[in-house]
Design a protein around this nucleic acid. Structure first.
Length: 478
RNA sequence: GCCCCGUUCGUCUAGUGGUCCAGGACACCGCCCUCUCAAGGCGGAGAUCAUCGGUUCAAAUCCGAUACGGGGUACCA
Protein backbone atom coordinates (compact mmCIF):
# COMPACT_ATOMS: atom_id res chain seq x y z
CA UNK A 1 0.00 0.00 0.00
CA UNK A 2 1.35 3.40 -0.72
CA UNK A 3 0.51 7.02 -0.24
CA UNK A 4 1.93 9.23 -2.94
CA UNK A 5 1.25 12.92 -2.34
CA UNK A 6 2.55 15.65 -4.56
CA UNK A 7 4.28 18.49 -2.76
CA UNK A 8 2.03 21.26 -4.02
CA UNK A 9 0.84 22.41 -0.61
CA UNK A 10 0.11 21.30 2.92
CA UNK A 11 -1.67 18.06 3.69
CA UNK A 12 -5.43 18.63 3.74
CA UNK A 13 -8.15 16.48 5.18
CA UNK A 14 -8.95 14.78 1.90
CA UNK A 15 -5.42 13.56 1.32
CA UNK A 16 -5.09 12.81 5.00
CA UNK A 17 -7.94 10.36 4.77
CA UNK A 18 -6.43 8.69 1.73
CA UNK A 19 -3.15 8.37 3.63
CA UNK A 20 -4.95 7.01 6.67
CA UNK A 21 -6.81 4.37 4.66
CA UNK A 22 -3.55 3.29 3.05
CA UNK A 23 -1.82 3.09 6.39
CA UNK A 24 -4.69 1.21 8.02
CA UNK A 25 -4.96 -1.23 5.13
CA UNK A 26 -1.24 -1.91 5.33
CA UNK A 27 -1.20 -2.36 9.09
CA UNK A 28 -4.36 -4.43 9.09
CA UNK A 29 -2.96 -6.85 6.52
CA UNK A 30 0.62 -6.93 7.71
CA UNK A 31 1.76 -5.18 4.54
CA UNK A 32 4.12 -2.26 4.16
CA UNK A 33 3.10 1.38 4.01
CA UNK A 34 5.15 3.24 1.49
CA UNK A 35 5.45 6.98 1.09
CA UNK A 36 6.52 8.43 -2.22
CA UNK A 37 6.82 12.06 -3.20
CA UNK A 38 5.39 12.75 -6.64
CA UNK A 39 7.09 15.97 -7.58
CA UNK A 40 7.08 15.71 -11.34
CA UNK A 41 5.39 19.02 -11.95
CA UNK A 42 8.00 21.68 -11.57
CA UNK A 43 5.48 24.45 -12.10
CA UNK A 44 3.34 23.53 -9.13
CA UNK A 45 6.08 22.63 -6.70
CA UNK A 46 5.75 24.46 -3.39
CA UNK A 47 8.98 24.59 -1.39
CA UNK A 48 8.56 23.36 2.14
CA UNK A 49 5.36 21.48 1.51
CA UNK A 50 7.12 18.14 1.44
CA UNK A 51 8.47 18.71 4.95
CA UNK A 52 5.00 19.75 6.06
CA UNK A 53 3.46 16.61 4.67
CA UNK A 54 5.98 14.42 6.45
CA UNK A 55 5.44 16.32 9.68
CA UNK A 56 1.68 15.94 9.39
CA UNK A 57 1.90 12.18 8.90
CA UNK A 58 4.34 11.83 11.75
CA UNK A 59 2.16 13.86 14.09
CA UNK A 60 -0.77 11.61 13.32
CA UNK A 61 1.29 8.55 13.97
CA UNK A 62 1.12 7.22 10.40
CA UNK A 63 4.67 6.00 10.30
CA UNK A 64 5.79 4.89 6.84
CA UNK A 65 7.88 1.76 6.38
CA UNK A 66 9.60 2.95 3.24
CA UNK A 67 10.05 6.43 1.87
CA UNK A 68 11.85 9.71 2.40
CA UNK A 69 14.07 9.88 5.49
CA UNK A 70 13.64 6.21 6.33
CA UNK A 71 14.84 4.87 2.97
CA UNK A 72 14.04 1.36 1.83
CA UNK A 73 14.95 -1.20 -0.82
CA UNK A 74 13.77 0.96 -3.72
CA UNK A 75 15.37 4.23 -2.78
CA UNK A 76 14.97 7.02 -3.82
CA UNK A 77 11.30 7.59 -3.09
CA UNK A 78 11.26 10.98 -4.71
CA UNK A 79 10.23 10.98 -8.34
CA UNK A 80 12.30 13.92 -9.47
CA UNK A 81 15.33 11.76 -8.61
CA UNK A 82 14.15 8.91 -10.78
CA UNK A 83 13.66 10.53 -14.19
CA UNK A 84 16.13 8.20 -15.90
CA UNK A 85 14.00 5.21 -14.96
CA UNK A 86 10.91 6.76 -16.48
CA UNK A 87 12.68 7.57 -19.73
CA UNK A 88 13.90 3.99 -20.02
CA UNK A 89 10.41 2.67 -19.58
CA UNK A 90 9.13 5.22 -22.07
CA UNK A 91 11.57 3.85 -24.59
CA UNK A 92 10.42 0.31 -23.86
CA UNK A 93 6.87 1.36 -24.51
CA UNK A 94 7.83 2.82 -27.86
CA UNK A 95 9.49 -0.46 -28.79
CA UNK A 96 6.44 -2.40 -27.72
CA UNK A 97 4.25 -0.16 -29.86
CA UNK A 98 2.44 1.18 -26.84
CA UNK A 99 3.70 4.75 -27.10
CA UNK A 100 4.74 7.24 -29.75
CA UNK A 101 6.28 10.66 -30.02
CA UNK A 102 4.20 13.70 -30.79
CA UNK A 103 5.15 17.22 -31.81
CA UNK A 104 1.70 18.76 -31.99
CA UNK A 105 1.49 22.25 -30.60
CA UNK A 106 -0.79 23.14 -27.70
CA UNK A 107 -2.70 25.41 -30.06
CA UNK A 108 -3.49 22.62 -32.46
CA UNK A 109 -4.57 20.37 -29.63
CA UNK A 110 -6.87 22.97 -28.19
CA UNK A 111 -8.52 23.54 -31.54
CA UNK A 112 -8.88 19.83 -32.15
CA UNK A 113 -10.61 19.31 -28.81
CA UNK A 114 -12.86 22.24 -29.47
CA UNK A 115 -14.13 20.69 -32.66
CA UNK A 116 -14.55 17.26 -31.14
CA UNK A 117 -16.64 18.70 -28.38
CA UNK A 118 -18.79 20.62 -30.83
CA UNK A 119 -19.37 17.44 -32.80
CA UNK A 120 -20.47 15.62 -29.65
CA UNK A 121 -17.46 13.31 -29.63
CA UNK A 122 -15.24 12.49 -26.69
CA UNK A 123 -12.15 14.70 -26.66
CA UNK A 124 -9.09 12.65 -27.41
CA UNK A 125 -5.90 13.02 -29.42
CA UNK A 126 -6.48 12.30 -33.09
CA UNK A 127 -3.16 10.45 -33.54
CA UNK A 128 -1.98 12.71 -36.29
CA UNK A 129 1.65 12.17 -35.25
CA UNK A 130 1.24 8.41 -34.98
CA UNK A 131 0.75 8.32 -38.75
CA UNK A 132 3.91 10.33 -39.41
CA UNK A 133 6.48 8.92 -37.01
CA UNK A 134 9.42 9.24 -39.43
CA UNK A 135 8.71 12.88 -39.86
CA UNK A 136 8.34 13.33 -36.09
CA UNK A 137 11.70 11.64 -35.56
CA UNK A 138 13.27 14.18 -37.90
CA UNK A 139 11.58 17.06 -36.12
CA UNK A 140 12.81 15.78 -32.80
CA UNK A 141 16.36 15.53 -34.14
CA UNK A 142 16.09 19.15 -35.18
CA UNK A 143 15.20 20.03 -31.62
CA UNK A 144 11.49 20.50 -31.91
CA UNK A 145 9.78 19.99 -28.52
CA UNK A 146 8.03 16.66 -28.33
CA UNK A 147 6.08 14.57 -25.88
CA UNK A 148 5.72 10.84 -25.58
CA UNK A 149 2.14 9.70 -25.84
CA UNK A 150 0.56 6.48 -24.74
CA UNK A 151 -1.01 4.53 -27.57
CA UNK A 152 -4.23 3.47 -25.95
CA UNK A 153 -5.25 0.02 -27.18
CA UNK A 154 -8.78 -0.79 -28.29
CA UNK A 155 -11.25 -2.92 -26.45
CA UNK A 156 -12.67 -2.56 -22.99
CA UNK A 157 -10.85 -2.00 -19.72
CA UNK A 158 -12.29 -3.48 -16.60
CA UNK A 159 -11.12 -4.11 -13.09
CA UNK A 160 -12.60 -5.25 -9.82
CA UNK A 161 -12.37 -2.23 -7.57
CA UNK A 162 -12.06 -3.12 -3.90
CA UNK A 163 -14.59 -0.43 -3.02
CA UNK A 164 -16.84 -0.25 -6.08
CA UNK A 165 -16.86 -3.68 -7.57
CA UNK A 166 -16.50 -4.02 -11.31
CA UNK A 167 -15.78 -0.82 -13.20
CA UNK A 168 -15.38 -0.74 -16.94
CA UNK A 169 -14.53 1.71 -19.69
CA UNK A 170 -14.66 1.57 -23.43
CA UNK A 171 -11.10 2.36 -24.41
CA UNK A 172 -12.40 4.33 -27.39
CA UNK A 173 -13.34 7.02 -24.87
CA UNK A 174 -9.89 7.12 -23.32
CA UNK A 175 -7.32 9.60 -24.57
CA UNK A 176 -3.73 8.97 -25.64
CA UNK A 177 -2.22 10.73 -22.67
CA UNK A 178 1.17 12.34 -22.47
CA UNK A 179 3.63 10.11 -20.62
CA UNK A 180 6.80 12.16 -20.92
CA UNK A 181 6.55 15.92 -21.09
CA UNK A 182 8.74 17.99 -23.34
CA UNK A 183 10.80 19.04 -20.30
CA UNK A 184 11.79 15.40 -19.84
CA UNK A 185 9.71 14.85 -16.72
CA UNK A 186 7.13 12.09 -16.68
CA UNK A 187 3.45 12.67 -16.02
CA UNK A 188 1.67 10.96 -13.15
CA UNK A 189 0.48 8.15 -15.40
CA UNK A 190 3.93 6.90 -16.33
CA UNK A 191 5.79 7.66 -13.13
CA UNK A 192 3.10 6.19 -10.95
CA UNK A 193 2.78 2.93 -12.84
CA UNK A 194 6.53 2.44 -13.17
CA UNK A 195 7.19 3.15 -9.51
CA UNK A 196 4.31 1.11 -8.20
CA UNK A 197 5.54 -1.86 -10.16
CA UNK A 198 9.19 -1.43 -9.34
CA UNK A 199 8.42 -0.85 -5.68
CA UNK A 200 6.27 -3.93 -5.42
CA UNK A 201 3.03 -2.14 -4.67
CA UNK A 202 0.19 -4.65 -4.49
CA UNK A 203 -2.71 -2.38 -3.55
CA UNK A 204 -3.30 1.08 -4.93
CA UNK A 205 -5.61 3.00 -2.61
CA UNK A 206 -6.21 6.44 -4.03
CA UNK A 207 -8.90 9.08 -4.43
CA UNK A 208 -11.91 8.67 -6.65
CA UNK A 209 -10.70 11.27 -9.12
CA UNK A 210 -8.34 8.62 -10.50
CA UNK A 211 -11.06 6.32 -11.72
CA UNK A 212 -11.15 7.73 -15.25
CA UNK A 213 -7.42 7.26 -15.73
CA UNK A 214 -7.24 3.74 -14.39
CA UNK A 215 -7.72 2.28 -17.92
CA UNK A 216 -4.55 4.10 -18.95
CA UNK A 217 -2.66 2.61 -16.04
CA UNK A 218 -3.98 -0.86 -16.77
CA UNK A 219 -2.85 -0.56 -20.40
CA UNK A 220 0.59 0.52 -19.25
CA UNK A 221 0.96 -2.44 -16.90
CA UNK A 222 -0.14 -4.77 -19.68
CA UNK A 223 2.34 -3.32 -22.16
CA UNK A 224 5.28 -3.24 -19.78
CA UNK A 225 4.77 -6.44 -17.82
CA UNK A 226 2.34 -8.62 -19.76
CA UNK A 227 3.13 -11.67 -17.65
CA UNK A 228 2.18 -10.08 -14.36
CA UNK A 229 -1.11 -9.10 -12.84
CA UNK A 230 -1.52 -5.39 -12.13
CA UNK A 231 -2.07 -4.26 -8.54
CA UNK A 232 -5.54 -4.20 -7.00
CA UNK A 233 -7.24 -0.83 -7.03
CA UNK A 234 -9.42 0.80 -4.39
CA UNK A 235 -10.84 4.22 -5.19
CA UNK A 236 -11.92 6.03 -2.06
CA UNK A 237 -14.65 8.65 -2.27
CA UNK A 238 -13.98 12.36 -2.11
CA UNK A 239 -14.33 14.29 1.14
CA UNK A 240 -16.77 17.16 0.75
CA UNK A 241 -17.13 20.40 2.68
CA UNK A 242 -20.39 21.54 4.24
CA UNK A 243 -21.32 23.13 0.92
CA UNK A 244 -21.13 19.68 -0.66
CA UNK A 245 -18.15 20.60 -2.75
CA UNK A 246 -14.74 19.05 -2.64
CA UNK A 247 -12.83 20.38 0.37
CA UNK A 248 -10.56 23.17 -0.69
CA UNK A 249 -8.40 25.75 0.93
CA UNK A 250 -10.45 28.51 -0.66
CA UNK A 251 -13.56 27.29 1.11
CA UNK A 252 -11.94 27.30 4.51
CA UNK A 253 -10.64 23.75 4.63
CA UNK A 254 -7.78 23.53 7.07
CA UNK A 255 -4.64 21.51 6.84
CA UNK A 256 -3.57 18.88 9.30
CA UNK A 257 -1.04 21.03 11.12
CA UNK A 258 -3.68 23.63 11.79
CA UNK A 259 -5.75 21.03 13.63
CA UNK A 260 -2.69 20.17 15.66
CA UNK A 261 -2.17 23.83 16.50
CA UNK A 262 -5.80 24.19 17.59
CA UNK A 263 -5.21 21.45 20.13
CA UNK A 264 -6.82 18.44 18.52
CA UNK A 265 -5.52 15.03 19.46
CA UNK A 266 -4.05 13.05 16.57
CA UNK A 267 -6.13 10.08 17.67
CA UNK A 268 -9.32 12.14 17.50
CA UNK A 269 -8.57 13.52 14.05
CA UNK A 270 -7.72 10.06 12.74
CA UNK A 271 -10.88 8.67 14.31
CA UNK A 272 -13.02 11.35 12.70
CA UNK A 273 -11.45 10.85 9.30
CA UNK A 274 -11.77 7.08 9.48
CA UNK A 275 -15.49 7.45 10.16
CA UNK A 276 -15.89 9.39 6.94
CA UNK A 277 -16.79 6.62 4.58
CA UNK A 278 -15.89 3.74 6.81
CA UNK A 279 -17.62 2.11 9.74
CA UNK A 280 -16.77 -0.86 11.86
CA UNK A 281 -20.11 -2.55 11.32
CA UNK A 282 -20.74 -2.45 15.06
CA UNK A 283 -22.13 0.41 17.09
CA UNK A 284 -18.71 1.36 18.44
CA UNK A 285 -17.30 4.52 17.00
CA UNK A 286 -14.57 5.75 19.29
CA UNK A 287 -11.29 4.19 18.29
CA UNK A 288 -7.62 4.85 18.82
CA UNK A 289 -5.25 4.14 15.96
CA UNK A 290 -4.45 0.59 17.13
CA UNK A 291 -8.15 -0.08 17.58
CA UNK A 292 -8.78 1.12 14.05
CA UNK A 293 -6.08 -1.19 12.72
CA UNK A 294 -7.79 -4.10 14.43
CA UNK A 295 -11.09 -3.42 12.72
CA UNK A 296 -10.25 -1.79 9.42
CA UNK A 297 -11.17 -3.39 6.14
CA UNK A 298 -10.84 -1.45 2.91
CA UNK A 299 -13.75 -3.39 1.43
CA UNK A 300 -16.04 -1.84 4.05
CA UNK A 301 -15.38 1.66 2.77
CA UNK A 302 -18.41 3.35 1.22
CA UNK A 303 -18.40 4.42 -2.39
CA UNK A 304 -20.41 7.60 -1.80
CA UNK A 305 -18.72 10.93 -1.08
CA UNK A 306 -18.98 12.09 2.55
CA UNK A 307 -19.41 15.55 4.03
CA UNK A 308 -16.92 16.43 6.75
CA UNK A 309 -18.66 17.67 9.90
CA UNK A 310 -16.41 19.62 12.30
CA UNK A 311 -18.97 19.11 15.09
CA UNK A 312 -18.45 15.39 14.86
CA UNK A 313 -14.71 15.91 15.17
CA UNK A 314 -15.29 17.99 18.31
CA UNK A 315 -17.50 15.32 19.82
CA UNK A 316 -14.95 12.63 19.13
CA UNK A 317 -12.19 14.85 20.42
CA UNK A 318 -14.03 15.31 23.72
CA UNK A 319 -14.45 11.57 24.08
CA UNK A 320 -10.79 10.98 23.36
CA UNK A 321 -9.73 13.61 25.88
CA UNK A 322 -11.84 12.01 28.57
CA UNK A 323 -10.47 8.60 27.75
CA UNK A 324 -6.93 9.73 28.46
CA UNK A 325 -5.25 8.71 31.69
CA UNK A 326 -4.71 11.81 33.87
CA UNK A 327 -0.95 11.65 33.49
CA UNK A 328 -1.27 11.44 29.70
CA UNK A 329 -3.46 14.51 29.57
CA UNK A 330 -1.11 16.22 31.99
CA UNK A 331 1.76 15.69 29.59
CA UNK A 332 -0.21 16.85 26.56
CA UNK A 333 -1.33 19.97 28.35
CA UNK A 334 2.20 21.09 29.15
CA UNK A 335 2.69 23.17 25.99
CA UNK A 336 -0.70 24.81 26.47
CA UNK A 337 -0.08 25.84 30.08
CA UNK A 338 3.50 27.06 29.92
CA UNK A 339 3.18 29.23 33.03
CA UNK A 340 2.00 26.36 35.23
CA UNK A 341 4.40 24.35 37.35
CA UNK A 342 4.30 20.58 37.08
CA UNK A 343 2.54 20.42 40.44
CA UNK A 344 -0.05 23.00 39.40
CA UNK A 345 -0.73 21.10 36.20
CA UNK A 346 -1.24 17.90 38.12
CA UNK A 347 -3.87 19.62 40.27
CA UNK A 348 -5.53 21.21 37.27
CA UNK A 349 -5.96 18.08 35.17
CA UNK A 350 -9.00 16.70 37.02
CA UNK A 351 -10.69 20.10 36.85
CA UNK A 352 -10.05 20.40 33.11
CA UNK A 353 -10.47 16.92 31.74
CA UNK A 354 -14.25 16.94 31.55
CA UNK A 355 -14.49 20.52 30.47
CA UNK A 356 -12.23 20.88 27.49
CA UNK A 357 -12.59 19.87 23.89
CA UNK A 358 -9.50 21.21 22.20
CA UNK A 359 -6.38 21.34 24.31
CA UNK A 360 -6.35 25.07 23.67
CA UNK A 361 -9.52 25.33 25.76
CA UNK A 362 -7.44 24.44 28.80
CA UNK A 363 -5.57 27.71 28.55
CA UNK A 364 -8.81 29.72 28.75
CA UNK A 365 -10.27 27.71 31.57
CA UNK A 366 -7.12 27.77 33.64
CA UNK A 367 -6.26 31.41 32.97
CA UNK A 368 -7.95 32.79 36.13
CA UNK A 369 -6.05 30.23 38.19
CA UNK A 370 -2.66 30.83 36.70
CA UNK A 371 -2.78 34.60 36.44
CA UNK A 372 -5.05 37.53 37.10
CA UNK A 373 -8.77 37.13 36.82
CA UNK A 374 -10.01 40.34 35.24
CA UNK A 375 -13.77 40.51 35.20
CA UNK A 376 -15.42 39.57 31.99
CA UNK A 377 -16.77 42.46 29.96
CA UNK A 378 -20.34 43.32 30.93
CA UNK A 379 -20.65 40.84 33.75
CA UNK A 380 -23.66 41.50 35.96
CA UNK A 381 -22.72 41.83 39.63
CA UNK A 382 -24.34 40.95 41.85
CA UNK A 383 -25.88 38.41 39.51
CA UNK A 384 -29.56 37.87 38.88
CA UNK A 385 -31.66 36.57 41.78
CA UNK A 386 -29.10 37.72 44.32
CA UNK A 387 -29.65 41.01 46.15
CA UNK A 388 -26.70 43.17 47.09
CA UNK A 389 -27.13 42.58 50.78
CA UNK A 390 -27.01 38.81 50.47
CA UNK A 391 -24.00 39.03 48.18
CA UNK A 392 -22.20 41.18 50.73
CA UNK A 393 -23.12 38.84 53.52
CA UNK A 394 -21.89 35.84 51.52
CA UNK A 395 -18.57 37.46 50.70
CA UNK A 396 -18.07 38.56 54.29
CA UNK A 397 -18.77 35.07 55.52
CA UNK A 398 -16.41 33.62 52.92
CA UNK A 399 -13.64 36.03 53.87
CA UNK A 400 -14.05 35.25 57.51
CA UNK A 401 -14.07 31.52 56.95
CA UNK A 402 -11.03 31.57 54.66
CA UNK A 403 -9.17 33.68 57.18
CA UNK A 404 -9.72 31.01 59.75
CA UNK A 405 -8.40 28.25 57.50
CA UNK A 406 -11.54 26.98 55.78
CA UNK A 407 -9.65 26.16 52.60
CA UNK A 408 -8.32 23.04 54.27
CA UNK A 409 -11.78 21.57 53.95
CA UNK A 410 -13.67 23.12 51.06
CA UNK A 411 -16.55 20.71 51.36
CA UNK A 412 -17.31 21.99 54.84
CA UNK A 413 -16.93 25.55 53.62
CA UNK A 414 -19.40 24.94 50.83
CA UNK A 415 -21.92 23.47 53.23
CA UNK A 416 -21.57 26.40 55.60
CA UNK A 417 -22.14 28.93 52.85
CA UNK A 418 -25.04 26.93 51.45
CA UNK A 419 -26.72 27.04 54.86
CA UNK A 420 -26.13 30.74 55.10
CA UNK A 421 -27.70 31.35 51.68
CA UNK A 422 -30.63 29.17 52.66
CA UNK A 423 -31.30 31.41 55.60
CA UNK A 424 -31.33 34.42 53.29
CA UNK A 425 -33.77 32.66 51.00
CA UNK A 426 -31.33 32.42 48.08
CA UNK A 427 -30.65 29.19 46.26
CA UNK A 428 -27.07 28.00 46.36
CA UNK A 429 -26.93 27.74 42.57
CA UNK A 430 -27.77 31.42 42.30
CA UNK A 431 -25.78 32.65 45.25
CA UNK A 432 -22.57 30.91 44.35
CA UNK A 433 -22.46 32.84 41.13
CA UNK A 434 -21.21 35.68 43.30
CA UNK A 435 -18.24 33.52 44.17
CA UNK A 436 -17.58 32.52 40.58
CA UNK A 437 -17.42 36.12 39.53
CA UNK A 438 -15.26 37.09 42.50
CA UNK A 439 -12.77 34.26 41.99
CA UNK A 440 -12.81 33.60 38.24
CA UNK A 441 -14.06 36.91 36.90
CA UNK A 442 -17.00 35.25 35.18
CA UNK A 443 -20.06 33.27 36.22
CA UNK A 444 -18.82 29.97 34.77
CA UNK A 445 -15.66 27.95 34.92
CA UNK A 446 -13.97 25.25 36.94
CA UNK A 447 -15.65 24.42 40.29
CA UNK A 448 -15.18 27.50 42.41
CA UNK A 449 -14.31 25.84 45.69
CA UNK A 450 -11.60 23.82 44.01
CA UNK A 451 -10.43 27.02 42.42
CA UNK A 452 -10.13 28.69 45.81
CA UNK A 453 -8.19 25.77 47.19
CA UNK A 454 -5.91 25.91 44.18
CA UNK A 455 -5.30 29.64 44.52
CA UNK A 456 -4.60 29.46 48.21
CA UNK A 457 -5.52 31.71 51.07
CA UNK A 458 -3.88 34.95 50.04
CA UNK A 459 -5.11 35.21 46.49
CA UNK A 460 -8.54 33.95 47.45
CA UNK A 461 -8.93 36.58 50.17
CA UNK A 462 -7.70 39.27 47.87
CA UNK A 463 -10.25 38.42 45.20
CA UNK A 464 -13.11 38.04 47.67
CA UNK A 465 -12.31 41.42 49.21
CA UNK A 466 -12.03 43.07 45.85
CA UNK A 467 -15.47 41.80 44.93
CA UNK A 468 -16.81 42.93 48.28
CA UNK A 469 -15.45 46.40 47.64
CA UNK A 470 -17.32 46.52 44.35
CA UNK A 471 -20.56 46.15 46.28
CA UNK A 472 -19.68 49.07 48.53
CA UNK A 473 -18.95 51.23 45.54
CA UNK A 474 -22.24 50.28 44.01
CA UNK A 475 -23.98 51.41 47.16
CA UNK A 476 -22.31 54.77 47.21
CA UNK A 477 -23.19 55.59 43.64
CA UNK A 478 -26.72 54.44 43.13
C1' G B 1 -20.49 18.01 -25.15
C1' C B 2 -18.39 13.03 -24.01
C1' C B 3 -17.09 9.31 -20.18
C1' C B 4 -17.30 7.43 -15.22
C1' C B 5 -18.85 7.17 -10.07
C1' G B 6 -22.62 7.93 -6.59
C1' U B 7 -27.91 8.67 -4.17
C1' U B 8 -30.85 5.49 3.64
C1' C B 9 -32.83 11.05 9.22
C1' G B 10 -29.62 18.14 8.65
C1' U B 11 -24.56 15.29 8.83
C1' C B 12 -21.68 10.44 9.30
C1' U B 13 -23.60 5.72 8.90
C1' A B 14 -25.97 0.19 9.95
C1' G B 15 -28.39 -2.63 6.52
C1' U B 16 -26.05 -7.69 0.99
C1' G B 17 -34.32 -10.52 -0.49
C1' G B 18 -38.29 -11.88 4.74
C1' U B 19 -36.32 -10.80 11.95
C1' C B 20 -36.73 -2.98 9.00
C1' C B 21 -43.98 0.72 8.98
C1' A B 22 -35.42 1.02 8.87
C1' G B 23 -30.93 0.60 13.98
C1' G B 24 -26.71 3.76 15.96
C1' A B 25 -23.71 8.32 16.34
C1' C B 26 -23.15 13.80 15.87
C1' A B 27 -26.09 18.08 15.98
C1' C B 28 -31.01 19.76 18.01
C1' C B 29 -34.97 19.73 22.03
C1' G B 30 -36.64 18.12 27.02
C1' C B 31 -35.87 15.84 31.80
C1' C B 32 -32.51 13.97 35.70
C1' C B 33 -27.91 14.77 38.32
C1' U B 34 -25.51 19.24 40.04
C1' C B 35 -21.82 25.09 43.50
C1' U B 36 -21.54 27.38 37.65
C1' C B 37 -19.98 25.42 33.05
C1' A B 38 -19.17 20.90 31.48
C1' A B 39 -19.30 15.66 31.75
C1' G B 40 -22.74 11.73 32.54
C1' G B 41 -27.76 9.29 32.55
C1' C B 42 -32.69 9.04 30.49
C1' G B 43 -36.20 10.47 26.80
C1' G B 44 -38.01 13.18 22.23
C1' A B 45 -38.31 14.93 17.43
C1' G B 46 -36.04 13.70 12.77
C1' A B 47 -35.65 9.01 6.64
C1' U B 48 -42.65 7.89 2.01
C1' C B 49 -34.55 4.13 1.96
C1' A B 50 -33.88 10.10 -5.00
C1' U B 51 -38.09 9.00 -8.63
C1' C B 52 -40.61 5.74 -11.85
C1' G B 53 -41.02 0.91 -13.77
C1' G B 54 -39.68 -4.32 -13.58
C1' U B 55 -38.19 -9.32 -11.21
C1' U B 56 -40.19 -11.98 -6.77
C1' C B 57 -45.02 -14.95 -2.56
C1' A B 58 -41.74 -10.94 -0.44
C1' A B 59 -37.12 -5.30 -2.16
C1' A B 60 -33.71 -0.13 1.25
C1' U B 61 -31.51 -4.71 -0.50
C1' C B 62 -31.74 -7.61 -7.57
C1' C B 63 -32.53 -5.28 -12.83
C1' G B 64 -33.67 -0.95 -16.06
C1' A B 65 -34.78 4.09 -17.09
C1' U B 66 -35.04 9.04 -15.37
C1' A B 67 -33.57 12.95 -12.09
C1' C B 68 -30.10 15.07 -9.10
C1' G B 69 -25.08 15.35 -7.06
C1' G B 70 -19.92 14.51 -7.75
C1' G B 71 -15.48 13.33 -10.55
C1' G B 72 -12.69 13.14 -15.16
C1' U B 73 -12.05 15.15 -19.85
C1' A B 74 -4.24 19.17 -19.29
C1' C B 75 2.95 18.69 -21.61
C1' C B 76 -1.63 19.04 -12.90
C1' A B 77 -1.63 15.34 -9.57
Amino acid sequence: MRFAPSPTGALHLGSLRTALFNWLAARASGGAFLLRIEDTDQGRYVPGSEAQILESLRWLGLQWDEGPEVGGPYDPYIQSLRTGTYREHGERLVQAGAAYWCTCTPERLAEMRDQQRKAGHPTRYDRRCLARQDEVARERAEGMPAVLRQRMPGGVSRWDDLIRGEVSFDNADVDDSVLLKSDGFPTYHLANVVDDHLMGVTHVIRAEEWIPSTPKHLALYAALWPEQAPPRFAHVPIVLGEDRNKLSKRRGARNVLEYRDMGYLPAALANAMALLGWSSGTEDEVFTLPELVERFDIARVNAAPAVFDPKRLDALQGLHVRRLAPNELDEMLAPWLPQATAEQRRQLVPLLQERIVRLADAADLAAPLLGDAPWEEGVQFPPKKVDTQTAAQLLDAAVEAVESGALDDVTALRERLTTMLDECGVKARDGFRVLYIAILGRPVGVPVFDAMAFLGRDVTLQRLRAARAMLDNAWREP
